[in-house]
């Protein structure tokens, strides 16, 4: 019985995760839970008192509005970070990618295995957030379940895009700038905390070209049972598009890096 090459690459991550997964999952849950409590309860109590705010949010309590978007932001963070330091570590001396490249695996198969791994990693974290959301009356909805694959796809898109860049790097000195200049602004302006329509018109369109906004919107629409076919199709296409582009760039860059 032979195993798909990409699955064999994926397995190697499991060996590492096996030792640290419990603390890892818990730590990854911490951030979304803090935001649910801090923003959802704190900001929520202010927002929900104003009648105009409720209509901007789609006539739902702030916590209900906020919850589903946090699935997507969590996936984005996990995906992007997984494709920064851990990925570079695979290329640098002592790196596992170099070891893989010497075996019968091809760079393409290594990338496929990484995509599979990112899916797993983001999926687990998103599931964790989903479980929390299902426990809270304001956010409990069957739509949260449908939002799990959407948020996961968002994480994979960020991992693939980030990974394609990381695989061309020799050093990690610009990595913290990625988090400061890209991830954090997206987190704040990607539509998770308020509708992007409340932003100045000049900034608003930026949100539309990021995978995050599409994922946030779709997750929210699904959990509020207001997802239309047309819009959903657009959101899904954008997410898939980003994954495909990132994936192809990863394949090219991994091949260049591993076989030079």
């Amino acid at each position: 019985m032979s195993t798909l090459p990409s699955v064999r690459v994926w397995e190697s991550h499991l060996y590492v995760m096996r030792r640290i997964w419990k603390t890892d999952v818990l730590l990854n849950l911490l951030q979304p839970v803090l935001f649910i409590l801090g923003m959802g309860l704190g900001v929520g109590s202010l927002v929900d008192r104003r009648v105009e705010s409720a209509s901007t949010l789609g006539d739902v309590p702030y916590l209900t509005f906020l919850g589903p978007g946090l699935m997507a932001t969590t996936a984005m963070m996990i995906g992007a970070f997984e494709a920064l330091w851990p990925l570079l570590g695979g290329f640098k001396w002592g790196g596992s990618f170099e070891a893989m490249a010497a075996t019968e695996l091809t760079p393409q198969q290594v990338v496929r295995g990484e995509v599979l791994w990112w899916t797993t990693r983001c999926g687990i974290s998103v599931l964790g957030v989903a479980v929390v959301l299902l426990c809270i009356p304001e956010t409990r909805s069957i739509g949260i379940v449908w939002a799990v694959p959407v948020a996961t796809a968002c994480g994979v898109a960020f991992a693939a895009l980030t990974g394609s860049w990381t695989s061309t790097r020799e050093f990690d000195n610009s990595f913290s700038n990625i988090s400061r200049l890209v991830i954090t602004p997206l987190f704040l302006f990607g539509g998770a905390f308020y509708p992007v329509s409340s932003l100045p018109d000049a900034i608003e369109p930026i949100a539309y070209v990021t995978p995050l906004w599409h994922a946030v919107e779709l997750c929210r629409d699904l959990s509020l049972h207001r997802a239309g076919w047309g819009e959903s199709l657009v959101h899904v296409s954008v997410l898939v598009g980003f994954i495909v582009v990132g994936w192809i760039m990863c394949q090219r860059n991994f091949a260049k890096r591993l076989h030079r």
């Binding site: 190697s12 060996y15 590492v16 030792r19 002592g94 596992s96 170099e98 070891a99 010497a102």
Partner: peptide, 13 residues
């Protein structure tokens, strides 16, 4: 079989 000049073992395992 390959023994590279620099070891690339998985040091966490």
């Amino acid at each position: 079989g390959v023994v590279p000049q620099l070891d690339n073992l998985d040091t966490e395992l």
